[in-house]
């Protein structure tokens, strides 16, 4: 917690926003972020009814376009999260793509629109449906949350594996969900050759490590430390709504 807030000014999204995407450092930070959140974009496109190839192609060209631009000048105007920015950018890219295709078909009706401009408005109300989209934004946010969780799990798994405790991670992973009655600490204790007290210590450590990893992950995509909890709570809310 302390380290998270102390090092906060160096997170990727703040670098990108401060430099408005213009410095090489900002570009590489944005590129890393985009790599991380490729999956939600791709899955969102799939959910929109695109075919696998189509979705892959679209997400590639979307990211190429996003990273190829020289600046992301809208990003510093309003406080915003990388998640919102990315979704806004994607929707505009899709709208543009749609219009371009229509224009090519019908030959005309050229209207230039910035990829970035209205992004923040569009995402300020997450349920606002895009004309090109038949599914609500919360689908994207759900995919986002799943990616986040996956990354958190991978980070923790890597840490545990590094200290030779991959079996601990595998065995105790279900306790990340809570203390459901179907889980048996005693059998886990036998499997790991630990005392019942030591199992509890290990479970607590795993949870702590995961919570830290998730927060560190979120910290990369928001502006201020206070927003970490807000973002986490928002994502929990989104994911709790059974789709």
């Amino acid at each position: 917690m302390i380290s998270a807030s102390k090092n906060f000014h160096t997170t990727r999204w703040t670098i990108v926003r401060k430099a408005q995407g213009e410095t090489p450092e900002a570009k590489s930070a944005l590129s890393e972020l985009c790599q991380t959140y490729y999956t939600p974009i791709f899955r969102f496109l799939l959910l929109q009814g695109k075919s696998h190839d189509e979705a892959e192609e679209l997400s590639h060209s979307f990211f190429a376009r996003l990273l190829g631009k020289n600046s992301i000048h809208h990003a510093d105007q309003k406080k915003g999260r990388f998640r919102s920015y990315l979704l806004g950018a994607l929707k505009h890219y899709l709208a543009e793509d749609h219009r371009n295709k229509g224009r090519l078909k019908r030959g005309g009706n050229i209207k230039h629109q910035s990829l970035d401009e209205p992004a923040t408005e569009a995402t300020s109300s997450p349920q606002l449906t895009d004309p090109t989209s038949s599914i609500p934004d919360s689908y994207f946010d759900r995919e986002w949350a799943l990616t986040l969780m996956d990354r958190g799990l991978r980070t923790v798994e890597a840490t545990f594996t590094k200290s030779g405790k991959s079996l601990h991670f595998k065995t105790l992973k279900p306790w990340l969900m809570g203390d459901s009655t179907t889980l048996c600490q005693a059998s886990a204790a036998v499997a790991l050759n630990l005392s019942p007290g030591a199992i509890k210590v290990s479970i607590h450590r795993l949870r702590k490590a995961f919570a830290d990893a998730i927060r560190a992950e979120i910290a990369q995509t928001v502006d201020t430390p206070e927003e970490i909890s807000q973002e986490l709570n928002y994502l929990i809310e989104v994911i709790s709504k059974v789709a």
Binding site: R43, L146, L176, M177, I239
Partner: peptide
Amino acid sequence: NPIPDNAPSGLCPACVLGRAATTA
């Protein structure tokens, strides 16, 4: 609640993230 089929590690995302929020 049903766990989404693309949930990482087959864990319930709502519970895992909810737990993480309270732990931290």
